[in-house]
Design a protein around this nucleic acid. Structure first.
Lengths: 224, 224
DNA sequence: AATGAAAATGAATTCATATTCATTTTCATT
DNA sequence: AATGAAAATGAATATGAATTCATTTTCATT
């Protein structure tokens, strides 16, 4: 999967992130990116609290000070991890659930694609960053806000595509149900993100299948 | 609602919580309970991080030191908040979804009761403690574990009651669906616990109604 | 009301990371 | 290869909240 690629080029959006300091030399860009990539991977293993700057620096084979010539502070670093993550997610979203793509797929396959896309995002290499963002959702920054924005974008695409499928008129009831589907998918996936002890899990494909079935059933497109 | 009562007597279970120090005088019991009650209420407003011991002491009209004669450390204090919460939740669970109660209600009303019970728990005075526990789920303690245990208990009751309703034989398919229902309910409610920006919310009754409808539909008991 | 145990007090201390900065090293341009 | 700007270094410092403890006060029993 494209958005799973390691060592993606981080140039073009990191530059504009508040607190990410200018990197004018190839060397500093390399170190900056290695900090970002290390962070993305580490957050799949532990909480950001437990990642100390000295640890991080050692892992990247450089010094504490270098961290601070790349990032204003730890907060800016986490912001950079998030922006990288959101960028990757949004690429995937645009690719797979644009209004055009959804109109081509039609309602039923479109819904299946929604479950698959969301499952893929929550299972990707960025899972740890997503988890950390979710677990810090109440902090002043609200690191989950951009995910919410993306979610709203997806929803809007679905509403448009469904309206089109229903020839311009979608019953209010169907709108409500569509929204609730999305809320179920997100809820179940967020729960899985944080909680390993469920019957249906993203670890195998059971959660994906369960969600698909639940959503299709609920929308009256019939299960499998 | 019973489990909503303020100033519930905290004697009988707090005594056994690790790190909760003996309180032999009426005065110390009073102070201990006022710390607990203040904490439960504060966590509806802010994260535990932001509650400092000096703040807490001032709020309870006593000194920092008194906190440490009641609780070994802040961790023990949070444990006490959780045990209080779980105690209240379990009382409500036993009262409302015992196997007997569920057999009396029958499958359809039983499912509605599940949605209502879970919604009530996640909307109670203990909402803040539940949220804080969820957001700390990855910490060594796993403060969410006891909630998971309660959840397992509820599930088991439902499986037993449904087996009874289906005269001792419940199709595997129905078992799976029942589990997934629960996973949806918990997922959606946990999401709401942490995230205010959804179409269906516990703030009004919309989430409760939506969940009820979704669950009944999915289980083929027909919506409203 | 005397007495010793329990509890409360809050200024001072501890502790664990995040962050700084004077110095050294590397880069890129001439 | 000389030069100045950029970047890296890591020991030292700052920070901020949790925790301690010597002292004072209150409780409960006689």
């Amino acid at each position: 999967m494209n958005f799973e690629d390691n060592d993606m080029p981080l140039t073009g959006f990191l530059e504009n992130v508040a607190g990410v300091l200018e990197a004018n030399q190839a060397r500093s860009v390399r170190i900056r990116d290695s900090y970002i990539n290390a962070g993305i991977d580490l957050l799949n293993e532990e909480r950001l609290n437990h990642v100390t700057i000295p640890d991080l620096a050692k892992l990247c084979g450089c010094s504490v000070g270098s961290f601070y010539t790349r990032f204003k502070d730890k907060e800016a670093y986490f912001r950079a991890l998030r922006v990288t993550t959101i960028h990757a997610c949004n690429m995937e979203i645009d690719r797979r659930v644009s209004v055009d793509a959804l109109i081509t797929l039609g309602p039923k396959k479109g819904l299946e694609e929604l479950v698959d896309l969301m499952s893929d995002l929550f299972t990707s290499r960025y899972r740890g960053v997503l988890r950390e963002s979710l677990l810090r959702i109440l902090e002043p920054d609200d690191p989950w806000a951009p995910m919410r924005d993306s979610a709203r974008g997806i929803m809007s695409n679905y509403h448009l595509a469904f309206e089109n499928a229903f020839e311009g008129y979608m019953p209010k009831e169907a709108r409500r149900r569509l929204s609730f589907c999305f809320q179920m998918i997100v809820g179940v996936l967020q729960n899985d993100l944080v909680n390993d002890y469920h019957v249906f899990s993203t670890k195998d494909k059971s959660l994906r299948n369960g969600l698909r079935e639940a959503v299709l059933n609920y929308m009256n497109f019939g299960g499998r």
